[in-house]
Computed example of a mutant assay.
Amino acid sequence: MDDTTRIELEAAAFRALLHHLMEKRPDVQNIDLMNLGGFCRNCLSRWYQEAANAKGIPMTKDEAREIVYGMPYADWVAQTQTEADAVKKAAFDVAFAENVGPKP
């Protein structure tokens, strides 16, 4: 497979993932994604921002989050996010440390 085709397929898969998270499963909480998969929507937006910045494209955290969430982050939180219990929060702290690093 040539590089152009590979990149097009990777981009299509990424768009499908975003669509799935935005349209089909907005109910899936970030904490559950992080606890089970080691990443969440915020990770995706950070990776997107880092890729843009590496290409010399200025992008803020908020701009990247709006791409991944399909709306401003604060709106998504208000519409979709639920409070996590203590068990999920403790698991999140472990998953975050293992997959992202120490909390700032």
Rank of each mutant, 00 (worst) to 15 (best):
L33K: 03
R65V: 01
L33E: 03
L18F: 06
R25Y: 11
L33G: 03
N42T: 12
V28S: 00
M34F: 07
E8P: 05
P26Q: 14
E23K: 13
I31R: 00
A52F: 01
L44N: 01
Q79F: 14
I57P: 04
P104R: 11
C43K: 03
A11N: 03
P102C: 09
M22Q: 13
H20V: 00
G70Y: 07
L36K: 15
V28C: 08
Y69R: 00
W76G: 01
A78V: 07
I67D: 00
A51L: 13
A74Y: 12
D32V: 10
K24S: 11
F39I: 10
R65M: 02
A97Y: 06
A95T: 03
Q79S: 09
I7W: 14
A64T: 00
V77W: 10
V28Q: 10
Q79K: 14
P58Y: 04
L33H: 05
E66V: 05
C43N: 09
D2W: 15
P58C: 11
V94G: 05
V94C: 11
L36F: 15
C43F: 06
T80K: 10
K24P: 00
T80A: 13
K89W: 11
K88F: 03
I31A: 03
A97M: 05
V68F: 08
G38S: 11
K61W: 08
N53E: 08
T80N: 10
T60R: 14
G37R: 11
E8F: 12
K88C: 09
G37H: 12
H19I: 02
A12D: 11
A12G: 10
W76V: 00
D3K: 05
T80L: 05
P72M: 04
R15I: 12
P102K: 10
T80D: 02
F14R: 01
H19N: 08
V68W: 02
C40M: 04
L36I: 13
V68N: 01
N35D: 06
G70W: 07
F92L: 08
A64F: 10
Q49E: 14
E50R: 05
Y73T: 06
E23G: 07
C43A: 05
E23N: 10
A51F: 07
I67E: 01
F96I: 01
A64V: 03
Q81R: 14
Q29M: 11
W47L: 01
V87L: 12
E8L: 07
F92M: 03
E10P: 02
R41P: 02
R15Y: 13
K61E: 04
T80P: 01
L21M: 08
A16C: 03
V68T: 04
A54K: 02
N99M: 14
A95H: 04
